[in-house]
Simulated scan of single mutants.
Amino acid sequence: MKLHIRNMVCIRCKMIVKQELKKLSLHYLIVEFGEVEILETINTTQLNELNTALLKYGLELMDSKKSILIEKIKKIIVELIHYSDEPEKINFSNYLSEKLNHNYTYLANLFSETVGINIEHYIITHKIERVKELLVYDELSLTEISYQLHYSSVAHLSNQFKKITGLTPSHFKKLKLNRCMGIVNPV
């Protein structure tokens, strides 16, 4: 039996879902971002108990086809930005259309109406979150980060970063390093 879960976008979410399934003695085949496949047929009581447990963590079972489609869009974007090593630049609109077998205009309109932001803004937000992670890890230069996330230039990445966060990438990195080292007021 396949279940669809809203807001399941990180490895921690997967661990929470596995933990809650185990508490209910439910056995899973697959726990992916936004989807779980369990061996048993789940009854209404178990379904309600699972949903109540997941809600405590900001996760939620879904049954609406449109809600499931929105979560699939989010899942694809999150996987591409955070967990993929795609070496070449992809066209998100074509990629989403192909993966979900829907016209991109339909997907974009549904996403905007339901989520309240457009797909492009959602992608940019996740790219900036990924940039923050990579800056904190301090393993790649800004040029390498720009290349990895398919920005046309470091300047483009920096402008988008500042627009979203209000900080330059170097200022963000400096603040994070100071916080980690316990420096309250850097001079």
Rank of each mutant, 00 (worst) to 15 (best):
I81T: 10
N103M: 09
S141R: 01
A155P: 02
S170E: 13
L21I: 00
K132N: 09
Y104E: 05
Y137K: 15
N118H: 14
V36I: 14
L134A: 04
I68C: 05
V31M: 07
N118G: 11
K22S: 13
L61N: 00
F161C: 09
K2L: 10
H126L: 08
E113T: 04
E37W: 10
I68P: 04
K176N: 03
K127D: 00
M181R: 09
K18Y: 02
N43D: 15
I123K: 07
S64A: 08
H126N: 15
E32S: 08
I76S: 01
I123P: 00
Y151D: 04
I124T: 15
R12T: 14
G34K: 00
L107N: 04
V17N: 03
E120R: 11
K173R: 12
L107V: 06
N43H: 10
N185L: 13
C180L: 10
E20W: 01
K2D: 05
Y106R: 08
I90D: 09
Y151R: 03
E71S: 12
V184E: 15
E32H: 08
K74T: 05
S152H: 13
K173T: 03
M62L: 15
Q46V: 02
H27G: 05
H4Y: 15
I145H: 04
L167Q: 02
M62F: 03
M62V: 12
N43K: 04
E88M: 08
Y104A: 01
E37S: 13
T143L: 11
K66C: 03
C10Q: 01
C180M: 09
I38S: 06
K132W: 06
D138Y: 09
T105E: 14
K56Q: 14
K174A: 09
S146E: 08
C13E: 12
F161Q: 01
N103Y: 07
V17Q: 01
S158A: 14
R130A: 11
C10S: 15
L39Y: 11
E40V: 11
S93K: 05
T125E: 14
R12P: 05
E120D: 06
K127N: 08
L135W: 03
E32Y: 12
K56I: 14
N101C: 06
K2P: 04
L21A: 03
E113F: 10
K65C: 03
K56A: 11
E86G: 04
V78R: 02
K14T: 12
N43Y: 08
L55T: 05
I145W: 02
L157C: 12
